[in-house]
């Protein structure tokens, strides 16, 4: 997930476990899809305990990002095309 650092992202949640992050997405966002580890969001392969929840909120995509020393963050990135692509997969 090398290019996440270069994205214009907002941190929605930090200091939570991966499972708590998944529940947060399912509770906070009406739209979400479940994917398997390795699924590509933007140009990165998401990792996590399956199923991985990806949230959708208008043109925003909310997804987990885990680093070995910093744990899991939920990131929110605005991208109309990616949100539309994920919505199409969800259907």
């Amino acid at each position: 997930m090398g290019c996440v650092e270069s994205m214009d992202y907002e941190i929605v949640l930090r200091d939570a476990t991966f499972k708590e992050s998944r529940e947060f997405i399912k509770k906070q966002f009406k739209e979400y899809l479940d994917v398997q580890p390795g699924f590509k969001v933007f140009d990165t392969h998401v990792i996590g305990l399956p199923p991985i929840a990806i949230g959708l909120d208008g043109d925003f995509v909310i997804f987990p990002f885990t680093k070995p020393c910093h744990g899991t963050f939920l990131l929110r990135v605005e991208d109309k095309e990616e949100a539309a692509r994920l919505r199409a997969i969800k259907k």
């Binding site: 991966f18 390795g38 990792i47 305990l49 399956p50 910093h70 899991t72």
Partner: peptide, 29 residues
């Protein structure tokens, strides 16, 4: 992670070192 996901490489055994939640996440992956 990228190489395994894209089926460019894999291994017979995988040892994941875990002492925090991130380690659990990598192991599940």
């Amino acid at each position: 992670i990228v190489m395994i996901t894209e089926n460019k490489r894999d291994f017979d055994r995988c040892f994941v070192f875990i002492h925090n939640d991130a380690g659990v996440t990598y192991a599940g992956t």
